[in-house]
């Protein structure tokens, strides 16, 4: 904390913080207010006398009703949830095992293999989707959830592996050695000691992986085409923007509902999440 006069605290701590919070939260506020604003207000010219861009006196559910009655929004939510959860589970499973192997087992090339995995994470998705599209087509997986469930791990596994590797390295080796002297095999030591201790790290990478796949856009746009199979991110933007007409109210309502699950996941795990990112293993 900054010591000294009150003005110094304000100038160097509170004011920047307030500005930061405003800048960060304003888009969410805009999203919320737009989704409850009747169309009449939304399309009012900015210089109209009765224009109130930051507030509405006549909140309405009409955009939400439209979303659920005129589009497949419920279906998109389910698709997104299913795809994000499944690909996160697959990636966590692989990432935890690979991270453990790279951090703990001394096999030749372990170091270079770790770097290689990291490099695959650096290949931009906008390039990777081209070969992946071909593979998806050859396996006839296009327009099914599996096209995403199987492609998301291409960037989630390297991410989870890298994060878990760092986390496992921070756990004192002695814990595991002690367990092995205590009578546990390598598997049991991993299962009963290392993984429970690494739980904050596993939760952190799980949350981030879940968010990444929840928000993923380009693969979902390319691999899914029928309205029934779409995810929220793609469905909302493709079905609620028709030509050059933006259904702003419903768009924002869709975006708001789409960000709620992620927000819940975050706040639910935030305690573990924070301790996972800051590392809190004590010997």
């Amino acid at each position: 904390m900054i010591e000294g006069a009150l003005w110094r605290k304000w100038v160097f701590a509170y004011l920047p913080l307030i500005l930061f919070v405003i800048v960060l939260l304003f888009p969410f506020y805009w999203m919320i207010i737009t989704s409850f604003r009747p169309d009449g207000e939304l399309y009012r010219p900015w210089n109209a006398v009765n224009n109130m861009p930051f507030w509405t006196n006549k909140p309405t559910w009409e955009h939400f009703t439209y979303l659920f009655e005129e589009t497949n929004f419920g279906r998109w939510m389910f698709n997104t949830m299913f795809i994000a959860a499944t690909s996160t589970l697959i990636s966590l499973f692989c990432g935890v095992l690979a991270g453990y192997a790279l951090a703990r087992l001394n096999f030749p090339w372990a170091g270079s293999l770790g770097t290689l995995i990291f490099i695959t994470y650096l290949v931009p998705q906008t390039l990777l989707f081209i070969p992946l599209a071909e593979i998806i087509r050859d396996f006839r997986l296009g327009d099914t959830p599996w096209s995403l469930i199987l492609t998301y791990p291409t960037f989630l596994i390297p991410f989870c592996t890298w994060l878990m590797m760092g986390y496992f390295k921070a756990i004192p080796k002695e814990l595991e050695e002690c367990a092995r002297i205590d009578g546990a095999s390598r598997w049991k030591a991993m299962l009963f000691i290392v993984i429970p201790v690494a739980l904050p790290g596993i939760l952190s990478s799980g949350i981030i992986a879940f968010t990444l796949s929840w928000n993923e856009f380009i693969y979902a746009l390319v691999f899914l085409s029928s309205p029934d199979e779409k995810t929220v991110a793609v469905g909302v933007t493709s079905e609620l923007i028709r030509g050059d007409v933006f259904f702003w109210g419903s768009l924002m309502a869709g975006a708001l509902l789409g960000s709620i699950p992620v927000a819940i996941v975050y706040s639910f795990f935030v305690e573990h999440y924070v301790s996972g990112l800051t590392g809190s293993v004590k010997g």
Binding site: P172, E174, L175, E177, C178, A179, I181, D182, I193, P196, V197, L199, V281, K282, G283
Partner: peptide
């Protein structure tokens, strides 16, 4: 059939 005591105790934190 040995038991070992480590410098950093190595107690299972959980």
């Amino acid at each position: 059939d040995i038991a070992m005591v480590f410098q950093n105790y190595a107690l299972y934190p959980h």
